[in-house]
Amino acid sequence: MGEVTNKLAVSLCGIDMDNPIIPASGTFGYGYEFADLYDINMLGTFSFKGTTRQPRFGNATPRIAECPSGMLNAVGLQNPGVDAVIAHELPKMRAVFTKPVMANVSGFSLDEYIEVSSRLDAEDSVGWIELNISCPNVHGGGMAFGTCASSAESVVRAVRDVVKKPLIVKLSPNVTSIVEIAKAVEAAGADGVSLINTLLGMRIDLRRRKPLLANVTGGYSGAAVFPVALRMVYQVAGAVKIPVVGMGGVSSAEDVIEMMLAGATAVEIGAENLRNPWACRDIIQALPDVMDKYGIDSLASIIGAAQP
């Protein structure tokens, strides 16, 4: 047992993890739906739903559309707001998850990012801040913070100043060069980057001749996006010195290993949790055998092994 734990162990921005498996933000709630299904303390950690300053209902429904080997979501950051997350959700989470958790932060202005990050940074249960910079920047004319290197740099710099815990910046794939953004946030003081968030897409309802999602567009994720995500993780890991958390379409232990070979220190799993609620448990349990099959003694030793 102890040996198995060691084989899977990694360290992310100075925090030791039993394994690199992290359910991704927005697909795992605050953990307790899943705690009814299995002991979620077996996870490396998990990233909870994106938190904003104010409570948000999110977008109108339909918010979900199926795609080949994946799905679109346009949830629109539904969350109870940072006060309620701290007062109600984190204590409930604490009852079922005892490891440091990853706090996913969203915002529509610099002020909001700073406030929400510093509030969550002060919580004992929080291990890392994962800063989602894919939200539209209301002050900057609606462009997402994360789609332009200079605005990405400014938000990371501002949050860096107020946050003591490791700061992981979550990158959008909907950019010309994700490498350029990754380098900008590294220069601004990020301790790590996580990628990819969802790819912008849409579907049209043939009967109604109208977009299927009430929000018109949504984020594409799930197995289909894996090759795109893997390519981006590989490129970013080759260009920055800080740890990279890889995600996008991961649905098996093999995918986890591919992500790590590409340069990921840890791996997040999103949409797969929705079709198979036990996906992360299954992957953690499958990893030792798959490692044996490919002659891998320890996951930590293969990070970036596919890099030139």
Binding site: G26, T27, G29, F57, G58, T61, P62, V75, A271, L274
Partner: peptide, 16 residues
């Protein structure tokens, strides 16, 4: 409602 998960994890099916 259109559902992502069906067990409360994704907020795909919310209503007021």
């Amino acid at each position: 409602e259109r559902m992502g998960c069906g067990f409360g994890a994704c907020m795909g099916c919310s209503c007021k």
